[in-house]
């Protein structure tokens, strides 16, 4: 559908492609996304959660060890083509014998 970026760059005179391939992995599954540099990663997260049958608040997306916010874009995170987002489960603690 969407093609790789030969359509030039909208803003500056750089030669970065407009679309990036991003790998999202939770150690079991790997999903590749092709995403515009200016698209919010929320779309990617929701798509991943939907696909894996997870609720969005139960997972954490990490890029180079830092949490990814819904409003982040590849641009704000300086992501490069082929970068990886790691998915971690929510951690919750408070110990009781029954649980």
């Amino acid at each position: 559908m969407a093609d790789n970026a030969e359509n030039g760059t909208p803003g500056g005179g750089d030669d970065q492609p407009e679309h990036l391939n991003i790998k999202v992995t939770d150690n079991n599954n790997e999903v590749f996304f092709k995403i515009k540099r200016s698209t919010k990663l929320e779309k990617l997260m929701n798509a991943f959660c939907e696909r894996q049958g997870k609720t969005p608040h139960s997972v954490r997306f990490l890029f180079e060890g830092q949490r990814v916010q819904k409003t982040d874009t590849p641009e704000t995170l300086d992501m490069a083509d082929g970068d990886t987002l790691e998915v971690h489960q929510e951690q919750i603690g408070g110990f009781s014998e029954g649980k």
Partner: peptide, 10 residues
């Protein structure tokens, strides 16, 4: 943010 979702899954 009005661009299409242009990811593909593989």
């Amino acid at each position: 943010i009005d661009d299409d979702i242009t990811f593909h899954l593989s």
